[in-house]
């Protein structure tokens, strides 16, 4: 009795028999078909990305009045009696404060001073931020009257539902810049000095953004980290500052909802 089947030995040429070749060919076509289907399924079913922008390769020069309430911003005139407050950020996952500290050595205070800044713009949904990569990109242009700066206006106590995000990634650097996949990055950003922002939805599913501060209006970073990137309900006091809203909170008043966030 002699078995007439094929036996493949890689170093023996022509040992790959016709039946084996046929089986392998079928398997390879099946794998190719599976690959095409899988690529299609995973590509088609991704959630839409937001149309935020990050101008990584180009720098824009901005001139405006510096203030920090408590997060550094540049108040830029965009039209007669119309101003935009641009949030200033450092390189990577860090605050702009180390660069500002260098500039402050030569000036008593920067608040109210006119600065010229060069940096990479980040913008989405009416908000603009700028990444500054060194203190050399900040120039003090002259004195300005701090009294021309508007004051925050208190709106009242509210309870909002949304997710605490890091604005640098959310408004353009990363897509998606929110949710569980991005949480670690948001934690690193806020830990590194990027201001925390609550992205909240109202009853009409419109998105609103609130820069989060503590109850006395101070910056908040480390204590909020356990709640970053999770759907949450937060009660606090809303204040407005021209095109931005602020939310004064006690971290203890943050409640994780455990439900899917509507900001996606």
């Amino acid at each position: 009795m002699k078995k007439q089947d094929e036996f493949f030995v890689p170093y023996i040429s022509e040992s790959l028999g016709s039946k084996t070749k046929k089986a392998i060919r079928r398997l390879v076509w099946t794998i190719l078909f599976a690959i095409i289907v899988i690529a299609g399924v995973f590509a088609f079913t991704q959630k839409p990305f937001k149309n935020g922008s990050f101008e990584l390769t180009s720098e824009t020069r901005l001139t405006g009045v510096f203030h920090e309430n408590p997060y550094p911003m540049l108040r830029v005139k965009v039209a007669d009696d119309s101003y935009k407050n641009i949030l200033l950020l450092g390189f990577g996952k860090s605050s702009v404060n180390p660069y500002l500290a260098v500039i402050r050595k030569d000036f008593e205070t920067l608040a109210g001073k006119e600065l010229a800044i060069e940096g990479n713009l980040i913008y989405y949904n009416g908000k603009t931020l700028v990444q500054i990569t060194s203190e050399e990109k900040i120039k003090v242009m002259g004195n300005s009257d701090p009294n021309i700066l508007p004051k925050k206006e208190k709106v009242g106590k509210v309870t909002l539902t949304g997710e605490i995000i890091d604005p640098k990634c959310y408004f353009g650097v990363m897509k998606p810049g929110y949710g569980k996949i991005h949480r670690s990055c948001a934690v690193r950003c806020i830990s590194g000095g990027i201001p925390p922002v609550l992205a909240a939805t109202d009853s009409n599913h419109n998105l609103h953004y609130y820069l989060i501060t503590d109850m006395v209006g101070g910056a908040i970073h480390e204590s909020i980290l356990p709640y970053v990137g999770k759907p949450a309900e937060i009660t606090g006091i809303v204040e407005t500052y021209e095109d931005w809203q602020f939310l004064r909170i006690n971290v203890e008043d943050i409640r994780e909802t455990g439900e899917a966030s509507l900001i996606y």
Partner: peptide, 21 residues
């Protein structure tokens, strides 16, 4: 083939993506 298909379809139907993603 897989990478080009995945990237190509994503760019067609979801063009706001980033290279990193």
């Amino acid at each position: 083939i897989f990478l080009l298909l995945f990237a190509g379809i994503t760019l067609i139907v979801n063009r706001e993506t980033t290279v990193e993603t």
